[in-house]
Design a protein around this nucleic acid. Structure first.
Lengths: 126, 126
DNA sequence: CGGTATCCGGAATGATACTG
DNA sequence: CAGTATCATTCCGGATACCG
């Protein structure tokens, strides 16, 4: 496994396409930045599978989140093109959120991370 | 693409294995937690491909990092079982870092994230 | 209902100096 | 060389109050 003529899949994209190790790290960091935040992943998992939820739905579905945080993370996800926002101009106001196609396509990558975590050597306890 | 009888791969693991959407989000958050930190991914990309680097190598290879942050993030990655540390008892001191097998196996998952980012609808500018 | 505005505390990061 | 210790700063998230 530590051969020098290693498999291509053992090397990151940075070694296969015109990316330096630094820019590749940068690229992944950008992704992490999109995903990080106390509530973003929770929101995403509430929306995966094409589900559409109102602001108040999310608020109720995510115990402990404040309005400030919920709207903030939703806005960031929206700015990043992961989540879409639909405003129904009516009273009382109604705003719905759902994943963009691109946001939905994040699912397999997240699964890969989950699978990686599950493949841990089983001594992780700290 | 927005059918209701969606493909299995359109749903996260939480819908296929005994995980709730919440615990699935929790699982991914744990992974993010391992990966987050201003310098961790940079360190990882310096180590991918079975590379072994000394502390000072990393310090030089990662412009802008302080000794404090470098050692802190290395220690955390080590505690999480991603990075291994080899101390050569000699003077001057020599300490080498490399990825564990498990850490190396993170590469494909990161590539998936990178691929996802590259598949963006091309309006991301904010 | 779906937000905004403001204040606050703790954690993460950075700068700098010192050490085995 | 490979760290540790201390202090300063910046950032993130929580609490609360108010608004169209």
């Amino acid at each position: 496994m530590t051969r020098t003529d290693e498999k291509v899949s053992d090397l990151p994209r940075s070694k296969r396409v015109p990316y330096t190790p630094e820019s590749a790290a940068q690229g992944v960091q950008n992704v992490i930045r999109v995903l990080e935040g106390r509530w973003k992943l929770v929101i995403l998992f509430q929306l995966f599978g094409g589900r559409i939820r109102r602001f108040s739905d999310l608020e109720r579905a995510i115990p402990g989140v404040s309005q400030k945080m919920l709207i903030q993370q939703l806005r960031q996800l929206e700015a990043d093109g992961v989540v879409a926002r639909i405003v129904h101009h009516q009273v009382p106001p109604k705003v719905e959120y759902h994943l963009t196609d691109w946001g939905q396509s994040l699912c397999p990558a997240l699964d890969a991370l989950l699978a990686w975590a599950e493949s841990a050597p089983s001594e992780m306890g700290s």
